[in-house]
């Protein structure tokens, strides 16, 4: 469903953030992308929807090659890829409802969106999603009145209302407390399962990565150094990705129940 071929990104400074990444993600698979800061995780998912223009290589979404698309075709392609951000990236001065509906911007015309006249179907879907994440009563609140966890739920709704085939998730838990982090990760997992979505989740928390993904990809200095099952993350592998450290405590056997609950 998503295929990266020899993806390279070189910044103006001359540094390579990605040094030729090959990766294939089948339909409905949730993968966790782990790696130290500066490994190129954010750059990788931004190269997929071309928020960052890749320097070299190809990105296939289904049969479509994305890197050569014209800007109007790119906009159509972006509708199929929902994105969830690290610091939520909600437009803080708009209401929750407007933030969710902004996920439909790729589908409606300019004046329609300017006058906030979204199709009935979209509004119903927005309410349904807000209800699903438990924020129905917050629809008319301004986004900056919400707590971190609530904001991230709105961010998830915004991504899902695009009706995407793929979710690009950039450090969804970076600014959340441990409990909320787990809730958000579980929610993303459940929703991916409900809708058969594939997802790439950047995450720096190894434990969360193991708990909530079917496949883990380790990135180091712009190259893939691990690609396999979550259970395969042995101390040697983690040392490979992050460098020397005592990893035993990090990869304690994950509670079976919790794992089950997580992938449900």
């Amino acid at each position: 469903m998503l295929r990266l071929e020899g993806l390279k990104k070189r910044y103006k400074t001359g540094d390579y953030a990605l040094k030729g990444v090959d990766l294939e993600i089948p339909n409905g698979q949730v993968i966790a992308l782990i790696g130290p800061s500066g490994a190129g995780k954010s750059t990788l998912i931004r190269c997929v929807n071309r928020l960052v223009e890749p320097t070299e290589g190809k990105v296939y979404l289904g049969e479509m090659e994305l890197t050569t698309l014209s800007s109007s075709k790119l906009r159509k392609a972006r509708r199929r890829m929902g994105m969830i951000f690290q610091e939520y990236a909600l437009v803080e001065r708009l209401t929750v409802m407007e933030n969710v509906l902004s996920g439909r911007l790729g589908y409606v015309g300019f004046w329609q969106s300017f006058l906030r006249k979204f199709p009935k179907k979209d509004i119903q879907e927005a309410y349904r999603l807000l209800d699903r994440v438990g924020l129905m009563h917050m629809a008319d609140k301004r986004a900056d009145e919400l707590s971190g966890g609530q904001r991230q739920r709105v961010g998830i709704c915004r991504a899902l209302i695009q009706d995407p085939d793929l979710l690009l998730v950039d450090e969804p838990t970076a600014s959340l407390d441990p409990k909320t982090s787990r809730q958000i990760m579980r929610l993303i997992n459940e929703l991916c399962a409900e809708r058969g979505l594939a997802a790439i989740i950047n995450i720096h928390d190894v434990l969360l990565a193991q708990m909530y993904s079917q496949r883990v990809v380790g990135l180091k200095l712009g190259e893939i150094v691990y690609d396999g099952k979550p259970e395969g993350l042995k101390p040697a592998v983690l040392t490979d990705i992050y460098g020397e450290e005592d990893w035993e405590a990090t990869i304690e056997e994950v509670d079976e129940d919790e794992l089950e609950e997580a992938v449900e």
């Binding site: 929807n49 928020l51 906009r75 159509k76 392609a77 972006r78 509708r79 890829m81 929902g82 994105m83 951000f85 690290q86 610091e87 990236a89 909600l90 437009v91 803080e92 001065r93 708009l94 407007e98 902004s102 996920g103 439909r104 911007l105 790729g106 589908y107 300019f110 969106s113 300017f114 961010g155 915004r158 695009q162 690009l168």
Partner: peptide, 26 residues
């Protein structure tokens, strides 16, 4: 805050829509 605009861009919004939804409210 540029990430708010980026988030709108990622939904497939046109430049005019990014302006109205991402920049103007800010």
């Amino acid at each position: 805050d540029h990430t708010q605009v980026e988030a709108i861009e990622a939904t497939g919004a046109s430049r005019a829509q990014q302006m109205v939804f991402g920049i103007v409210p800010q």
